[in-house]
């Protein structure tokens, strides 16, 4: 009944030229990114795939930390929904984080990130859950009254239709007014990926 191949993760670098065509990365950058991928994917089990534990380890340098957002980011990268990341998923997702990636892609990614229940809108209860998680993860303490007033103010500004929801259109207006909200969807490091991982030249498939 099902096409199992759809869920099978392809291992290895694959065809860097196809990935380069379909992402903002050049062929060399795809190859350099693969060096990073190999490093992360071999941290726990050297199987050429990144599992959630390896992703957490790379992010926090510990696998002990519980993080709502690390889980969310991993799940968004994991487009095949099989709990592991192949290189292609990793490269395609990180392409959104490139400084030269279209801003619309960044808006879409950040919206999906915060749309915890995949409802097509962000509701108050989700915002509260994320604020509480952020505070807990960073060891900050704010009273419930203060948290509620932060959320009140946010909805006052973002919820222009007063229906208690921040849909994609409202999200777009909000982030265009506050570009800093997209800051964490841009990684300057990706511009220098070939100099950060110069060893890619030893494995390069393309002649320069």
């Amino acid at each position: 009944c099902c096409d199992f191949d759809l869920y099978k993760e392809s291992r290895g670098l694959g065809d860097p030229e196809i990935l380069a065509r379909e992402t903002v990365f050049s062929v060399s950058e795809v190859e350099a990114l693969y060096e990073l991928f190999k490093k992360i994917s071999s941290a726990v089990i050297d199987d050429g795939l990144i599992n959630k534990e390896e992703f957490q380890l790379a992010l926090f340098k510990t696998n002990k930390k519980e993080s709502l957002f690390a889980d969310r980011v991993f799940d968004l990268f994991d487009t095949k929904h099989n709990g592991i990341l192949g290189f292609e998923e990793f490269a395609r997702a990180l392409s959104v984080f490139h400084p030269n990636a279209p801003v619309d892609d960044k808006i879409e990614f950040s919206f999906q990130l915060y749309d915890l229940k995949h409802q097509g809108f962000i509701e108050r209860q989700e915002v509260k859950q994320m604020v509480v998680a952020t505070l807990a993860e960073s060891g900050m303490n704010l009273s419930d009254d203060v948290i509620e007033s932060i959320i009140d103010k946010t909805f006052e500004e973002a919820d222009t239709k007063h229906d208690g929801k921040i849909d994609k259109e409202k999200w777009r207006i909000l982030v265009l007014r506050h570009p800093s909200l997209l800051k964490n969807v841009t990684l300057q490091y990706l511009k220098d990926i070939t100099t950060t991982f110069p060893s890619f030249v030893f494995h390069s498939q393309v002649a320069d």
């Binding site: 990180l94 994320m130 103010k153 964490n184």
Partner: peptide, 25 residues
Amino acid sequence: KPVTMNAFELISTSQGLNLSSLFEK
């Protein structure tokens, strides 16, 4: 002044959203 802060500004400071640490050696 946390009260004047946008909730999403606060959320975006979360360590779990800071992918730059993926690149640290």
